[in-house]
Simulated assay, not measured.
Amino acid sequence: MKIAIVTGASSGIGQSAAVQLARRGTGVILTFRGNEAGALDTAAMIDKEGGTAVALPLDVGDTTAFPAFRESVAAALRDTWQRDTFDFLVNNAGLGQMAMFEDTTEDMFDTLMRVLLKGPYFLTQTLLPLLADGGAIVNTTSNAALRSGLEPGYSAYGTMKGGLVVLTRYLAKELSPRGIRVNSVSPGSTRTRIAGDAFERYPEVIPGIAAKTALGRLGEPDDIGMVIATLLGEEGRWITAQDIDVSGGYNL
């Protein structure tokens, strides 16, 4: 059995990725920060369908906690799957904040950098000794880092996600001697809990987004989760160093 770690899997894209991977026969270690109930719901969904999941707490914005998290991962691998390695890493956990460039504070910039770029960088580094040769990594980026997704108010957020796209290519290059593939997915606007359930609080913005999307609707978590699972599976075995725009043709 293959084993995946999916960060930020208590809801949204991470939850979908965890469930989609489990449906393909993959065991899942999923992480949460504040939403433990959501993480347990994800694990329960996987268990109900005959899969195996372990939920572990993790704050991707706190690098000092990463060594202890690695020990928790090692224990889960040993106790649940009798393994000392895992096969797939999905760097998905994040947060969303927006502000016009002139209103972006240094504190906001640092928070986004810590969670969206520094966190995935050093979490991957910390977990690398446990990642099996021939494994794969998928980073969740954003079309805010692409020309097609440029919208006012996301200069800091898009900058961090753009950095993650570049990191994806470097990891693909440096980890290729071990047969490890590294790709990223760049979702467009997707119905998740990001930015405090923004789409639940401001449903009036959805028609405008749908009108700018070639396929005519807002993205759903499974639209992204299925792509992540595919990139990690045998279907993606000859794909590496790529960023996939998964936005339904936003601004096409």
Rank of each mutant, 00 (worst) to 15 (best):
S176K: 07
L123H: 04
E220M: 11
E235F: 12
L175D: 04
R33S: 14
R201A: 11
R33Y: 15
G25H: 09
K2Y: 13
T159P: 05
V205Y: 08
G233S: 15
E49T: 11
F86N: 00
G163Q: 01
I239H: 07
A53R: 06
G50A: 02
R23T: 07
L130K: 09
P129E: 04
Q20W: 12
P207F: 12
K48Y: 11
E234P: 11
L218Q: 03
F69H: 03
G38R: 07
V227G: 06
A37V: 08
R23N: 15
K161M: 10
D41V: 13
D223V: 03
L131D: 02
T124D: 01
V166D: 11
Y250V: 03
A39H: 01
I180A: 00
A43K: 10
G38V: 00
L89H: 02
A18I: 06
S142N: 07
N91V: 03
K173V: 12
T26L: 02
A198S: 04
T111Q: 14
A172Y: 02
E204D: 13
V19A: 11
I5L: 15
S247H: 03
T213H: 07
V19G: 07
V227K: 01
V227R: 08
V185Y: 04
R24K: 15
L231K: 01
G188S: 04
S142W: 11
G162N: 02
G134L: 02
Y170I: 11
V60W: 08
I244N: 06
M100Q: 15
Q97D: 13
P221M: 00
V73C: 01
R201V: 06
A44W: 07
A145G: 09
A37E: 14
L58A: 07
Q97C: 11
A172R: 00
L112A: 09
E174L: 13
V182W: 02
V60G: 06
V182R: 09
G149W: 04
